[in-house]
Amino acid sequence: MATPAQVIRRAQLYVPGSSMRFLEKSRSLPSVDSVAYDLEDSVTPSKKPEGRQNILSILNRDRVPGIREQAVRINSVGSGFALDDLTEILKGKHLDCLVVPKVDSASDLHFVTDVLRQKLPERHGPGSTNPVKIVALVESARSVMDLAAICKSSPYISGLTFAAEDFALDLSLTRTPSLHEFMYARSAIVTAARAFNIPSALDLVSTTFRGEEGKTQLQDECANGKRFGFNGKQCIHPDQVATVQEVYSPSQAEAEWAVRVVICDEKADRQGRGAWTLDGKMIDVPVVGKARAIVAKAELCGVDVQALQEKYRDEEPT
């Protein structure tokens, strides 16, 4: 299983596989952590064969510097399209991740895992180091109730994603700006991700983003998700990506605090001190663990951690 330090998905952008124009446009994005070429909701049944070939052609091209991860959202295992999807897109030279929708039980990911091992044994055999990762979409009451089994169902699972619209449909919920109606499901998802050391917990799609009001709502949703414990968010338009990735990155203040804590902790450790204070607040093992995680993520997000370490090298614990 991948470790959190190896994966960063602050934003995962869906791009319809039936549109070569949109697929081409996605390759010109300046920076996006993960692009999920879509074969599911955005592609009608009659267009799915064409969508597979479009995506395959993209996956077989040279990588572009702006995209960290190339993923494909296949159709659900129960749809009747999943095996055809996998048969084609697993031929892609630069496929990094599968996004699997409507994962209601562990058996869905057992199926995907078996196909991965059969079709790509060189990437999924003993000792392999570059498997295709799996992100599972949580879309139903049954899925939420079966999260523990889902998280243990494949060694390649790398993310859990909350699909709010389908979940709301399943439970006859009405989505509100507060998102209170999703509190239980969202908490369950981030808790399961942490409990089973799954790197990514991706929050719901924001459907409003245009104009200043839309951007403000997107920022608020991202901040809400970050407080909840999510470390990324789904995007349905390229204009959302920059805002989402900014909010889900450590802020300058967070990065500086974390670097100061780590520097001081190393000094406190040499002094034999298990707890100490910084800025009048007690620092102990859990706080140090949080600081180290922020520093690691800051490095992945492009923050000049080395410069901060130099700036605060003389910091002392009190």
Score class of each variant (00 low, 15 high):
D265K: 11
L202C: 06
D269H: 12
G274S: 15
A298D: 04
V247E: 02
E299G: 15
P199H: 03
E221A: 13
A298H: 05
E310Q: 08
I263M: 06
A275Y: 04
S187G: 08
Y184S: 14
V261M: 05
V205W: 00
V285D: 12
K281V: 02
I283A: 04
R273H: 12
T216L: 12
K215W: 00
V285Q: 10
V288C: 00
I198Y: 04
A185R: 07
K311A: 15
E212M: 15
E212R: 06
G274M: 12
T216S: 14
E246M: 15
G232F: 01
E221S: 13
D239Q: 07
D220R: 05
M282R: 11
E212W: 03
L308G: 12
C222P: 08
L308N: 15
H237T: 03
G289I: 03
D314I: 11
A192C: 15
R227A: 09
E256Q: 11
R273Q: 11
C264D: 02
W276L: 12
E213F: 07
L202T: 10
W276H: 15
G289W: 01
E246K: 12
D284I: 09
Q271V: 12
V244Y: 11
V262F: 11
C264E: 01
G280L: 04
D279C: 09
A201V: 00
R186W: 07
Q234D: 06
R186I: 09
R292H: 14
A201R: 00
E310P: 06
L300S: 08
L278G: 03
V295G: 08
A255P: 02
A253M: 08
D314E: 05
Q309G: 10
Y248D: 00
A188S: 09
A293L: 02
Q234I: 01
C301G: 12
Q309S: 13
A253W: 01
A258S: 10
D220P: 09
L278M: 14
A223E: 07
V190D: 04
Q252F: 06
V288I: 00
I236H: 09
N231E: 00
C235Q: 05
W257I: 05
A298T: 11
S200E: 06
V190H: 01
G232E: 03
R260F: 01
R260T: 10
V303Q: 14
R227D: 03
K297I: 02
V205L: 07
E310R: 12
F196Q: 11
K215G: 13
A188W: 04
W276M: 08
K226A: 05
L308Q: 03
V285F: 15
F182E: 04
N224R: 11
D314Q: 14
V244N: 09
Y184P: 13
G214V: 02
A296W: 01
A253H: 11
F196T: 02
Y248K: 00
Q306E: 10
K233L: 04
D220I: 01
N197H: 14
T216Y: 09
F228Y: 10
K311V: 00
G289L: 01
C264A: 13
M183S: 15
I189F: 15
